[in-house]
Amino acid sequence: MIAINNVHKAFNKGKANQVNAVNGIRLNIQSNEFLVIVGSNGSGKTTLLNLVAGTVFPDNGSINIDGNDVTKTPDYRRSQWIARVFQNPMSGTASDLSILDNFRLAAIRTKAKGLSIGVNDAFKQQVKEKIATLGMGLENKIEQPMGTLSGGQRQALTLLMSVMDSCKVLLLDEPTAALDPRSADVVMRTADKLITDFKLTAILITHNLKDAYNYGNRIIQMGEGAILRDLSGEQKSALKQNDLFDWFG
């Protein structure tokens, strides 16, 4: 589904403070794979995710998504395959817009945003039913501005929004970093359920080793812009939580 071929990305190139954030990474991610990325601060995890999303472009190497060379495709075109959940709940939703309008935009992620009114009663009903599955009681607040909700509620809604339109790849960059443990748990469970139900290919970046242990069917550890470890399928299942802690020992 995603092929990253020998991709390099440096910031402040040619200056004294040059950072080689991603250093010749090769990575093939299969359909339905749920990849967890761990690694210490500054190891290049977010940069790698941004390279896949198209918010930064590689210095060399190429990126393929679903058989298409997207190396030079901007982020707003890659959205036909990719949905994202950001670390900051503010980034993934529009605060001043109602929940309903946020969902409308998400429902046409892969389509043109035309001059017709798409928010009708049928759509409202559809959104209410979707939101009700979260069990947070938000289905009666769909006319409220997104900004009136808590970070956890917003992250959970962002997750739902990602499957409002056809979605193949879900990118999650520390989606629970800003949340309290209970909200974090709800968001992670919701993510896992959506990934399974909608057969998504997913990449999750996390510093929470418990989540890294519990979720996903492949795990890589990054360090200094390279892949240090790569365990998938049974290797990951065989992994113990303490082994993960040892990686950072």
């Binding site: 980034s91 529009a94 935009l105």
Partner: peptide
């Protein structure tokens, strides 16, 4: 809606397919 969202959260709007 895409217009109103642009001033609000550019990262979101781009991720939702808006130039």
């Amino acid at each position: 809606i895409a217009m109103r969202a642009t001033g609000n959260s550019e990262s979101m709007v781009r991720a939702l397919g808006v130039d």
